[in-house]
């Protein structure tokens, strides 16, 4: 009798365990990461346990010191370490990319120790690409978070002058939960900067129809008026 009870306990408890694990396999729990990346993440979790975020934070502390001492390669290494240890942290992706594509690249541009402008420019572009690569990895971890898409859009717009890519990123960010109204407007500005007046007009009109916030509507209407006024003077030209 006792054995039967024990078997029932094992079967019922084990069944419950497997039922919960089956629920955990639902599509919304899946990410777009490769198996290798996922195994790596889980292994780090297991080995470091609760210290994983702390190790990431300590690497991040070194990011700040590397930035202050303008050691860009070390800065890059520490950013990589921090995001590898704790990819869930948006802060690391967001600020990490800003360090690379803005601070490191501008640091190289203004590097007086390098006399050849070509080399400076080459290094500047290198760090911009590192920042882009970091954010592109970040969006694979956080495909549904507007902040990373927004940052990627800004990087394309401000550092790479690729307004088409910037528009795509802003548009994607604007459709995600929690995105403030200005993100959708950034997509419109990117189209304007690209020189695509027809699409920009169409986009602004579309946004005006969709927008319910009075403050947003006022800004969009102002923009539309300006665009229409400008188009009477001269055709839009893409920014250099």
């Amino acid at each position: 009798m006792k054995r039967v009870l024990l078997i029932l306990m094992i079967v019922w408890g084990g069944g419950g365990k497997l039922f919960y694990e089956g629920m955990n396999l639902s599509p919304e729990n899946k990410t777009s990461l490769s198996w290798g990346n996922r195994f790596e993440q889980q292994l780090i979790c297991g080995v470091l346990g609760g210290w994983r975020p702390v190790v990431a934070d300590l690497a991040w502390l070194r990011v700040t010191t590397s930035w202050e001492s303008r050691q860009w390669s070390r800065l890059h290494e520490n950013i990589r370490m921090a995001v590898r240890m704790q990819p869930e942290s948006l802060l690391f992706w967001d600020i990490g990319a800003w360090h690379l594509a803005w601070n490191a690249s501008l640091g190289e541009r203004n590097n007086r120790l390098e006399s050849q402008m070509e080399k400076r420019h080459e290094r500047e572009l290198y760090w911009i690409e590192q920042g882009r690569s970091l954010l592109e990895e970040g969006v694979r971890y956080h495909p549904n978070h507007f902040k990373i898409w927004l940052q990627l859009g800004l990087l394309h717009q401000e550092r790479r002058h690729d307004f088409g890519a910037a528009y795509d990123c802003f548009l994607r960010a604007s459709h995600l939960e929690g995105a403030p109204g200005y993100v959708a407007r950034l997509a419109g500005y990117a189209l304007e900067k690209q020189g695509d007046r027809a699409r920009a007009l169409e986009y602004w009109n579309d946004l005006l129809e969709r927008s319910s916030n009075p403050a947003d509507r006022t800004l969009i209407e102002k923009r539309l008026l300006k665009l229409e006024k400008d188009s009477m003077i001269s055709p839009l030209k893409p920014l250099p």
Partner: peptide, 10 residues
């Protein structure tokens, strides 16, 4: 809860 149940049984 379910894990503890089968663990206690086994």
């Amino acid at each position: 809860f379910f894990n503890l149940f089968w663990i206690l049984g086994l």
